[in-house]
Each structure stands twice: as structure tokens, then as C-alpha cells.
Amino acid sequence: MAADEGKVDPMKQFQIEPLFGSSWDIAGFNIAFTNSALWMAITVVLLWAFVYGGMKRELVPGRWQMAVETFTGFIDDMLEANIGKEGRKYVPYVFSLFMFILFANLLGLMPVGIIPGFHAFTFTSHFTVTGVLAVISFSIVLIVGFAKHGIKFFTLFVPHGTPLLMIPAIFLIELFSFMIRPFSLALRLFVAMMAGHVLLKVLSSFVIDGFNYGIGTSLIVAVPSFALMIGISALEILVAGIQAYVFALLTSLYINDAEHLH
């Protein structure tokens, strides 16, 4: 990694480094406090500060309170639109999920790298993290589904009006598409985050190398790449919001399946 100084390794940003507690472990599994864990902690603290600023409980809200209420109202509306009245009880979970992912995505885009020795780390670009979040969402769907409908939950895999002959095949296909959900949920966020960050790093290496080689490459390569980076950074901010929204939206749609079975 550090072998060739001046070269940008687009994968280095995903490196997990233990900060302390390298020897901590639970039942033989290492639980060192890493840079990934540090950014999770920062996410939690900032998210807490953001929501705390909106807890003044004023009748006429200020800007901050308005912003927080907009987010809770957004999640509330989304759950009510997708699930209905029963959706309200999932607001705490879906709000936590959406805001946690949103803050993580946005924090990963912060230019803290300009401070020497600091690097932003986007933990949502790790499938270990997105996988756990997807498994939690999927578990909620399974628990709610079986608790509410029992064995009838399996009728979810047989859409209304399926011909009798087709039921075994349709059941298998539907079951497969159901079981693939946690994977698609986890991979979508992981891939979107990682691809954007890799692209930005690759372009930044074009900028640095272009400037280093002289005036010609500066004009032809470095300047356009830099302009492109600015545009893609804006796009990445959009993607950060969209991916958090998609994760929360799909979770609410899956919970709707569990609540209502089609």
C-alpha cells in the first residue's frame, strides 16, 4: 500500500485498522475497536445530536426542530403509505435504519482527509455491515410474518389466482425471490457505496498524476478529471440519500408483506 508514495490506491480507503483493543475477544472472536467502529460511534453521536436538537418540543418549531420533524414525518408517511395504520409501530426501527445509513453514507463523503492523519471511512461500503442490517430487517419480516399468520405465512409464496398445476413451480420461484431479499438488500447498498468511492479515488489519481506529468496532461487529463470529480461528488451525495431511502423503503415493503400477505 505505502510502497509507492504518490500513487493512490483506490482500495486503501476500505482498509480496516484496529485502533485499540486488538486483544479483546468474545468466545474466541476478536472484537478490536477499529476505524470502522470509530465511524459508527461518530455516526451515532452526530445522529443523537441532530435528533436532540429537534427535541425542544416547541409549538412553533425552529429550523432545527423543523428539520428533525421533517425526517420523522417522512418515515411516518412512508410507512403509512406502504403498510397502513399498522406501520406506525415500525417508525422507531425504520427511522433508526434510514438515519443511521444516511449519516454513515454522508460522513464517508466528508473531506476529512485534508486533515493529515485522518481518513473518512464509510462502513456502509462493507458487506459485513450492510449484511447485518439486511439480516435484521429480514428477521423482523420473518418474526412478524410467522407471529401474525403462523403457517399461513407460506401463502405469501402463492399469489392469488395461480393455477393449481403451477403452484409448486410458482412456490419455489417466489420462495427463492423471498430468500434472495436480504442479499439484494445488503449488496445494493454495499456496491453503490463502494463503487462511488472507488470512482472518486480513481479520478483523484488521474488528477494527481496528470498534474505531476506536466502542463499537457494537466490540461487534457487533470482539469477535466477534477471537474468530473466535483460532479460525481454531488452525485454521490444524491446516491447516499437514495441508497438510505431504498434500504428503508424496501424494508417497509417487506414488512408490509409480513403484515398483510399481499
Binding site: P18, F29, M40, M55, E69
Partner: peptide, 29 residues
């Protein structure tokens, strides 16, 4: 293991403190 552990810890804090503790108050307001 470290990733999963710390994610569960911090997402758990997010869910319990913010999701369950603070969001209902905001929505109550």
C-alpha cells in the same frame, strides 16, 4: 466479528436511544 459486534452495539444504541427514546417524543410534539 469486530464489524458485526460494533455494528450491533452502535445500531442498538441508535435504535434504543434515538429510535425508541427520542423519535416518539418528536412525533408526539
Amino acid at each position: 466479528s469486530s464489524q458485526i459486534f460494533w455494528l450491533l452495539v452502535f445500531f442498538g444504541i441508535t435504535f434504543v436511544v434515538i429510535g425508541r427514546g427520542m423519535v416518539p417524543k418528536v412525533m408526539g410534539t
